[in-house]
Design a protein around this nucleic acid. Structure first.
Lengths: 121, 121
DNA sequence: GTCATTACTTACATTTTATATAGTACATTA
DNA sequence: TAATGTACTATATAAAATGTAAGTAATGAC
């Protein structure tokens, strides 16, 4: 997440796949460990950094910060800084970010069904 | 993918998240670099190892093997070995695997729209 | 007996992602 | 003047995912 090597095979593979397969492209954006959960919380409305942190009990500030920045770079969320002290920063889904909603719901649904399938065995 | 340390914080975090959030659970299953693309190909019908390899030009045999095994462990695909020489092995989506179809389609759709959004800037 | 074919596996190296811990900046409050 | 709260950043380290290169097993064709 910090410094990726654009000369690596891995990077090239990701790029190539993302260009050919929109589902791989989407996966690159949504694949982070906390990404979908953050988006899921933001579906309910904008939240401050500290509010997100509270909802993601085990995340470190660094990870939250990195994931938010990645989401912002991908235009999934917007970031609003209020000129106050102590600082206040709000994160909110953009239009394209919000359009993930049905997919997240479908994933939650499928996930639950999958879990049930696994427990059958 | 090979040896994960069940005592790590990372492992604990993933477990905890997966239990609470079905979307994180789903993401753990689908998050591999090639996973969705493999599933996408299998949506069109069962394929042999070598046929998959042909469709994923840059994947190494090791990665394909690992991803297929993970998918199999997660009951996403079934593996049929024909007692022939040289060997023939077919991979096919299971019921729960096939139920990913609408999600993959939705992701492809959303991915394309997202790409368009990014190119606007 | 050597070669070809297929579906792998193994050992190792590298890259990417995640965690741990400790800072920083700023204005208000005490 | 020192302490407080918020949203971070910096550096180090650990873990996970991916890639490289070389093997293996089995048997039918030559």
């Amino acid at each position: 997440m910090t410094d990726i090597k654009t000369a690596s095979t891995n990077f090239a593979n990701k790029q190539a796949l993302a260009e050919e397969c929109p589902e791989a492209y989407a996966s690159n954006i949504l694949g982070g460990q906390w990404t979908l959960v953050i988006c899921s919380w933001l579906l309910e409305g904008k939240l401050r950094f500290s509010e997100l942190k509270k909802r993601l009990p085990n995340i470190t500030e660094r990870m939250l910060s990195l994931q938010l920045r990645k989401l912002e770079d991908n235009k999934m969320i917007s970031r609003t800084v209020y000129p106050e002290v102590p600082p206040r920063v709000e994160y909110e889904l953009t239009t394209i970010g919000y359009e993930l909603k049905p997919i997240i719901k479908a994933l939650e649904d499928w996930g639950s069904r999958h879990k049930a399938t696994m427990e059958e065995a």
